[in-house]
């Protein structure tokens, strides 16, 4: 049989429209199984019929849908288009004949797995980012600590140098009558004019008072800065520089220091053996 003639015989149309006889139907179905082009021609006519019928769609009586769902024992799902004269264009359900249609559940699971995977990757990235941030912060702190250590080392070194320097004059401050136990050492580097003070024994003062170091230059007191005495007395204090000094004195002044010393509060005093 010539397939082209068969296709053009009107059998497709008879079959699709339900006008073919039983034997014609059987033959047509048998040939469809053998000839994909026959199936394609049938499908094309079916699509034409469907499109035409949809174009001619009539509004359905609204109660019919409710009655149908009552009859099949389910409640009608709400719909916007149940009474619409022209049904909306839809994705043709049975158009995709592949078996993949039957894998809806599998698709759902696959989709869920993909979502889960994405979530996990995201969480991993978050954790990694956090880790990186912390490492960076840690490194920053290390650098800061090292820098602080270096600065401290340098200061200690400088001070050790000053103290051990042959140019440095050590002035042993001794207590006055009003504070016989007070004692401190002044290290005066005459070359660099630096003045360091090591408090040996100075009583703790009320919060509104501070000790003040003076250099006595040609009989006149010159302010070298204020300091607090604490129990941890071993600290070396860097005071203001002075090029000249015949003696050093420590007084008790109000917090922040005074422009001129309160001599009756003189705590200790020492003579610079080396004068410039």
């Amino acid at each position: 049989m010539n397939l082209k003639d068969y296709i053009e015989s009107g059998i497709i149309e008879s079959y699709v429209m339900g006008l073919a006889s039983e034997s014609e139907r059987a033959e047509f179905e048998r040939l469809c199984a053998q000839h994909p082009e026959l199936v394609a021609a049938r499908r094309k006519f079916e699509e034409g019929i469907e499109a035409s019928a949809k174009e001619q769609a009539l509004p359905t009586p609204p109660e019919v849908k409710v009655k149908i769902f009552e009859a099949i024992g389910k409640t009608a799902p709400s719909s916007l288009s149940s009474t619409s004269p022209i049904p909306p264009k839809i994705h043709n359900m049975e158009n995709s004949k592949s078996p993949a249609r039957g894998l809806g559940m599998l698709r759902l699971v696959a989709a869920a797995a993909v979502v889960l995977l994405i979530a996990m990757v995201w969480l991993y990235m978050q954790a990694k980012q956090q880790n990186q941030d912390l490492t960076k912060e840690n490194d920053g702190l290390k650098v800061q600590r090292d820098t602080a250590q270096n600065i401290l080392d340098r200061i200690v070194q400088e001070q050790k140098q000053a103290i051990g320097d042959p140019n440095t004059t050590v002035v042993n401050m001794v207590g006055t009558k009003s504070a016989p136990k007070s004692s401190a050492n002044v290290y005066w580097d005459s070359a660099s004019s630096s003045v360091y003070l090591v408090v040996k024994n100075m009583p703790k003062l009320p919060n509104d008072q501070q000790y003040q170091l003076w250099a006595l230059i040609d009989g006149k007191p010159s302010d070298l800065g204020v300091f607090d005495a604490s129990k941890d007395d071993k600290v070396i204090l860097k005071m203001k520089n002075t090029r000249k000094a015949q003696a050093f004195a420590i007084t008790i002044e109000k917090r922040g220091g005074s422009p001129s010393p309160t001599l009756e509060k003189m705590q200790s005093m020492g003579k610079a053996t080396q004068t410039q």
Partner: peptide, 25 residues
Amino acid sequence: MLALKERNNQAFGFLYDNYAGALYS
């Protein structure tokens, strides 16, 4: 299609909404 064969209510409602007008005609 599978949803229809499994007598899925939603799918059937969808089927109705999309084809009832054409069949009524």
